[in-house]
Amino acid sequence: SEEWVEIALRLLELGREANINGTILNLHKEEIEELIRRLLKRI
């Protein structure tokens, strides 16, 4: 399964939302940290 691709796409999506909203992603901080942890486990 290409889970890391899904994770990377989700991170990009959150990054785009952050640019549009001008936020520092506090809302998504925990989700982002969890996604990155899952991503690093696969490398």
Rank of each mutant, 00 (worst) to 15 (best):
I20N: 06
W4Y: 04
I7A: 05
R10M: 11
I7W: 11
A8S: 04
H28L: 15
G22H: 07
W4F: 08
E33L: 14
I24L: 04
I20L: 12
R37I: 07
E13A: 10
L9R: 10
L27I: 12
G15K: 03
R16S: 08
I32H: 00
A18K: 04
N21S: 06
E31D: 05
L11R: 00
I7S: 03
L35I: 05
L35T: 01
I7T: 01
L12W: 10
E30S: 07
E33G: 04
L25T: 13
E6M: 13
R42Q: 05
E33Q: 10
K29S: 13
E34R: 10
R42S: 11
I20D: 05
L11V: 04
S1V: 14
I36F: 09
I36C: 10
T23R: 05
R16G: 05
G15Y: 14
L25D: 06
L35N: 01
L11I: 06
K29M: 15
R37K: 05
G22S: 07
L39W: 07
H28I: 15
E2G: 12
E33M: 14
E3H: 13
E13M: 09
L11Q: 00
I24A: 07
R37C: 14
K29A: 14
E31P: 02
I24M: 05
L39G: 00
R42A: 13
S1E: 12
N26A: 09
I20G: 06
N19P: 04
G15M: 15
L39Y: 05
I36E: 00
N26W: 15
R38H: 04
L14K: 01
L25Q: 05
A18S: 07
S1G: 10
L27D: 12
I24N: 10
K29V: 15
E13Q: 10
L40N: 01
N19E: 10
E13P: 02
A18M: 10
I36A: 02
K29Y: 14
E2K: 13
L25A: 09
A18Q: 05
K29P: 13
I7R: 02
E6N: 11
V5D: 02
E30Q: 09
L9P: 00
E13N: 03
G22W: 09
R10E: 03
R38P: 00
I36P: 00
L40G: 01
E31S: 02
N26S: 07
L14D: 01
A8H: 03
V5I: 07
I7P: 00
E6G: 09
R42D: 03
I32Q: 00
E3T: 11
I32F: 08
E30R: 11
L9G: 03
E3D: 12
N19W: 15
A8G: 04
L9E: 03
R37G: 02
S1F: 13
H28Y: 12
E17R: 12
L39D: 00
L35D: 00
E34A: 08
V5C: 15
G22Q: 10
N19L: 15
R42N: 04
I32S: 00
R16I: 11
S1R: 08
E34K: 08
W4A: 02
N21H: 06
I7G: 02
S1M: 13
N19S: 14
N19D: 09
I24T: 05
A8Y: 08
H28N: 09
L27Q: 10
T23K: 08
R38Q: 08
I20K: 11
L12N: 01
E3L: 11
V5G: 03
L12Y: 04
E17N: 08
L14T: 02
I32V: 08
I24R: 05
I24H: 07
I36S: 00
V5L: 11
E30F: 08
R10L: 09
E6D: 07
G22T: 12
R16H: 07
E31H: 08
I20Y: 06
I20R: 11
R16D: 03
E3P: 07
R38S: 04
E30W: 06
N26D: 13
I24Q: 04
I7F: 05
T23L: 13
L27V: 07
L25N: 04
W4C: 14
E30G: 08
K41P: 02
I43Y: 07
R38N: 06
G15D: 03
I32A: 02
N21Y: 04
I20P: 05
L39M: 05
R16Q: 04
R38W: 13
R38K: 05
E34L: 12
R38E: 03
T23Q: 08
E6I: 13
N21E: 06
S1L: 14
E3F: 15
R42H: 11
L11S: 00
